[in-house]
Structures are given as structure tokens and as C-alpha cells.
């Protein structure tokens, strides 16, 4: 077979596969876009920060700013705050009913710094989610379960008065994650 013929044959064989992979990738990226809207939403990203400081945001604050009162991750890196000023000093198991009152959910804390979403590109967030070193040593299915069942994650859709909830719901995000996984969990290019 001539070289040219070989190329033609290979092309003929692989074309449908390429098309199908291409379609799956496109579908996957579309699912990822839905997921990314959730992860990058202030209700989620404000506590998935790279540095020491949770963020506040909302129309009233003119974009995202630092959490007031010098609130930090905690010198022990735990994400639960510092001695004398743990998150749980103000953040209890339920939302304050007052506008600008402290929101609450079980186990209120910052995500580990390696799970940073705030200010990160979609590609970087996607890569982080897929990296067991940086996603809490989870399979993607476990990530999806976490999103569906964790009470602190669930807070993102029930954030208390005056706060815009994350888009969709925990269940919808879970299903989007499963579909994204089924399409091969593609990440957008950087």
C-alpha cells in the first residue's frame, strides 16, 4: 500500500471515531460549563481561595472583596480559622435570618488552599478537580457524590437572605458532573 493510500485508509477508519470523540468532548465541555458556573460562583469560590482570606461579594460590596475583620484560614492551615477566632465563632449550623448576618452550615470552613477556585480560570479549576493530589484524593464519582451530599456544599444553594444562590441545585450539579464524566471529563484548553 502506498503511503498515500495508507493515510487515506487510516483517515477513513478514524474519521467517525474522531467525530465521535469530538462530539463527546463538546458535550463534555458543555457540561463542564454548567459545572464551572457553579464552582466559580461567589457562593462556592469565595471560600475556595488560594490565599489565607475568604471573600465577601455581592452587589452591595461592589464586587468581591476580602472578608471583613481580618478573618483568615488559620495558621494551622485547617481552614477553620485561628485560635480565639474560629469560623464557628460566628458561623453556626444555620443561616442568620438577618441581611448581612452570618450565614451558617455544618462544619463551616475554608476549602484547602490547593482546591483554589477563586480567581482561577475554568481550565485550572477543571484540572484541579481531576487531580487526586488536589481534590482530596477523590475519584470523579466521589467528587460528584460530595457535591450532592455535603451539607456545607449544599449551603451554596441556600445561602440565606440577601445572597444570590449558586445556579441550579446540588442535584443538578451532581448530574452534570456524572454526564461530564461519561463524556470523558474533558477540560477546556488554557
Amino acid at each position: 500500500m502506498s503511503r498515500l493510500a495508507m493515510i487515506v485508509v487510516l483517515a477513513a477508519i478514524s474519521a467517525p471515531a474522531l467525530v465521535s470523540i469530538g462530539a463527546a468532548r463538546a458535550d463534555g465541555l458543555s457540561e463542564w460549563a454548567t459545572i464551572h458556573k457553579v464552582f466559580s460562583h461567589p457562593r462556592c469560590a469565595n471560600c475556595h481561595v488560594e490565599d489565607e482570606r475568604p471573600r465577601w461579594s455581592g452587589d452591595h460590596y461592589g464586587g468581591a472583596g476580602m472578608h471583613g475583620f481580618n478573618i483568615k484560614r488559620g495558621t494551622d492551615g485547617s481552614g477553620f480559622g485561628n485560635p480565639g477566632q474560629r469560623c464557628a465563632v460566628c458561623h453556626f449550623e444555620a443561616n442568620s435570618g438577618k441581611p448581612h448576618g452570618p450565614p451558617g452550615a455544618e462544619n463551616w470552613h475554608l476549602a484547602p488552599a490547593e482546591m483554589a477556585w477563586f480567581g482561577q480560570s475554568s481550565a485550572l479549576i477543571c484540572a484541579q478537580i481531576k487531580d487526586p493530589e488536589r481534590n482530596g484524593d477523590r475519584t470523579l464519582e466521589e467528587v460528584a457524590d460530595h457535591v450532592r451530599s455535603d451539607p456545607l456544599v449544599a449551603w451554596g444553594w441556600n445561602p440565606g437572605p440577601g445572597r444570590q444562590p449558586a445556579p441550579g441545585s446540588a442535584e443538578e450539579t451532581y448530574r452534570a458532573l456524572l454526564r461530564w464524566i461519561s463524556f470523558g471529563a474533558p477540560c477546556p484548553g488554557t
Binding site: W56, H60, Y61, G68, F69, N70, P99, H100
Partner: peptide, 14 residues
């Protein structure tokens, strides 16, 4: 403004 979240004052770290 309505409360200390948007009308704050110097804190000890400052």
C-alpha cells in the same frame, strides 16, 4: 450603609 459590614472602623490588626 447599615451596619459594621459596610461601615467599619479600625480593628486591632490595623
Amino acid at each position: 450603609q447599615s451596619n459594621f459590614h459596610d461601615y467599619d472602623a479600625m480593628r486591632i490588626h490595623q
